[in-house]
């Protein structure tokens, strides 16, 4: 009913709506800070954690505050290869954010297009697409990842590809479900009567209404993608061990938890937690602001 207004809402109104919630604003600030830190990682850290020549095995598993053989201080301790945790966390944040966001955005885009087309077309097109979706959803991501890994080797791009393959079907199904309900509403009939084209109906009328529930799912999914990447790393199928993401750092430090070398796993865990909480708070607010009915 208010969809036209929602679709044409100017940016300023949107920003004002967003800023009304202080917590969300704070989360946005934290997120911006995290992004900045991730981007500026090479200038904020004493060590390039991906350059093996800079690591020293004799500095392995030092507790926070220890001095390194190279002179700097391991403020957050070092891991089992003598990698400075502070440097590793900032660099890892960069990879995790990149992997989580990119894979979610690509999967969301594919799922949105496929879901809308499926809902609108109906008939055998719909049936075919939904069967492909079923196929995809019943295919464990771990197997997809293992096959991709075996065929192509390890790498950030392979992980993103694997996560997209794992996630797109989920969006497609959610979008289709929401779109079906939406397509039965009166305003669509009105739009059809008004002689609007297919694309216009789908993207200007249906899309704004299916988007809010999708953003709830997507914010959860960014977090999920990052956690899934960590899980794949835990199972030995993730990123190259020499270029750890936050998830891989946690997975690597996991075995040292019982032994009391908590910093190897807990500090990246806190960084991950902070990132995901911030993403979700921002996402929640976005949903509220974007939802035409809640405004």
């Amino acid at each position: 009913m208010n969809s036209c207004i929602a679709a044409s809402a100017p940016g300023r109104e949107f920003a004002a709506g967003f800023a009304r919630d202080r917590i969300a604003l704070a989360a946005l600030a934290v997120l911006a800070l995290l992004f900045a830190a991730a981007l500026a990682a090479p200038w904020l850290t004493p060590q390039d954690p991906y350059d093996l020549a800079q690591l020293d095995i004799l500095d392995a598993k030092l507790p926070p505050g220890s001095a390194a053989a190279a002179g700097h201080t391991y403020w957050l301790g070092s891991d089992d290869q003598g990698r400075d945790m502070w440097s590793a966390i900032l660099h890892g944040l960069r990879i995790s954010l990149g992997v989580g966001l990119l894979s979610t955005v690509i999967a969301l885009g594919i799922g949105l297009a496929v879901g809308l087309v499926s809902a609108r077309a109906g008939g055998w097109v719909d049936a075919l697409i939904m069967r492909v979706v079923d196929l995809q959803l019943s295919f464990p991501s771990i197997l997809v990842a293992l096959i991709l890994l075996a065929l192509t080797g390890q790498g950030v791009d392979r992980i993103i590809a694997a996560l997209v393959v794992v996630q797109w079907a989920y969006y497609a199904r959610t979008v289709r479900g929401a779109a079906l309900v939406e397509l039965r509403r009166e305003y669509i009939d009105a739009a059809v009567c008004a002689g609007y084209g297919e694309a216009r109906i789908l993207f200007r009328h249906v899309l704004p209404n299916v988007l809010p529930p999708l953003i709830v799912v997507a914010t959860v999914q960014v977090a999920h993608a990052i956690a899934l990447e960590a899980t794949l790393s835990f199972l030995g199928l993730g990123l190259p061990i020499t270029e750890p993401s936050l998830g891989l750092l946690i997975a690597n430090g996991y075995i040292y938890l019982l032994a009391g070398h908590y910093w190897i796993s807990v500090f990246p865990g806190i960084a991950l937690l902070l990132t995901i909480v911030a993403i979700n708070l921002v996402g929640d607010r976005l949903r509220d602001v974007l939802n035409p009915r809640l405004r």
């Binding site: 093996l52 020549a53 690591l55 020293d56 095995i57 290869q81 003598g82 890994l149 075996a150 080797g153 390890q154 030995g236 190259p240 061990i241 020499t242």
Partner: peptide, 15 residues
């Protein structure tokens, strides 16, 4: 790490 220090730049491929 050790080979790299001796001049043999080594990339790891663990699977």
């Amino acid at each position: 790490q050790l080979l790299t220090r001796a001049g043999i730049q080594t990339r790891v491929e663990a699977a």
